[in-house]
Write a protein that binds this DNA or RNA. Structure first.
Lengths: 156, 156
DNA sequence: TTGTGTGCAAAAGCTTTGCATGTTG
DNA sequence: CAACATGCAAAGCTTTTGCACACAA
């Protein structure tokens, strides 16, 4: 069975668990998300669906994203620009992001030491931690041809 | 010299550096920010100024916050709720945040291991990293009286 | 005096909501 | 067929913008 079908099966299970309906929109939006490898916003996802001649409203895209996030199939990020960005979640370990303030490139990384920090912090602060977001902001050294002056080094 | 005057002096220096004017609004807003110890949004700051009978517009609060961030005196955060939160920055080492998904409590922590991760990632990804944001989401074990069920464990 | 900063209100952009319609279970 | 999901448009919020006026340099 291919990846697309596998992920749809997982959605089916999660929807059943929650007593939610299996609508065409939910599967189609899930598929569109898993077809991409980037970090996208709601509008990009909406337009990609329309470009495939699949008719959905923005409201449904928003609603469905919430559902998919709740099901653990999509992740939502706030990188500081306006609006949220999303990416598929399944099969991808928790990972951090590195964002170029100049060209907006987004890279991902994994570092097992982060897990250690999470455990320490959870213990010290008396928290049950179940999600994390680590973002580094800076300038990528190649590709975006930026002169590294001392000005505007602060992201928002 | 007290802390408030010290911070105002720093602002003076930073404004001069940038050729920006020393307006009453900038100093007053800075002072209002340094009078608080919490994470606040634009509206809260705006209202606190009005409550002191200091007249500013929302636009000026937004503009001034940008200036203060650029001067390194204020930090902006995106914790996932709508809108950004701010806090004073000077004299506070880079620190991570722990956010309770249930009661919205925000705690802070420092972990030197994060710096190590930042350096590794910078080297591996070929980035000049100059800012970081680490947020852990979870439930605080006391104070917010939450039943820890298996549902709604996913923040946005 | 000169030009930047502010105030106000309107606009813009992202996200949510309400209601009617359509579809799943 | 009953409840839930969708579509559409309108409303809500946060943030930005444009223009006239005020004030710092």
């Amino acid at each position: 069975m291919n990846t697309t079908n596998k992920i749809k099966d997982i959605l089916s299970i999660e929807l059943e668990k929650r007593g939610l309906r299996k609508t065409i929109e939910r599967y189609k939006i899930l598929e569109a998300i898993y077809d991409r490898t980037d970090h996208f916003d709601v509008e990009e996802l909406y337009l990609s669906l329309r470009k495939q001649n699949f008719h959905v409203s923005r409201a449904t895209v928003y609603n469905t994203l919430d559902t998919l996030i709740d099901c653990g199939l999509v992740q939502k990020h706030h990188f500081g620009g306006d609006g949220a960005l999303f990416e598929k979640a399944l099969g991808f370990r928790q990972h951090g992001h590195v964002v170029c303030i100049n060209c907006n490139k987004i890279l991902e990384f994994c570092d097992p030491r982060l897990q250690t920090i999470q455990e320490s912090v959870g213990n010290i602060m008396d928290f049950n931690i179940n999600d994390q977001a680590l973002i580094f902001y800076g300038y990528c050294k190649d590709g975006c041809n930026r002169n590294l002056s001392d000005d505007d080094k602060k992201p928002d």
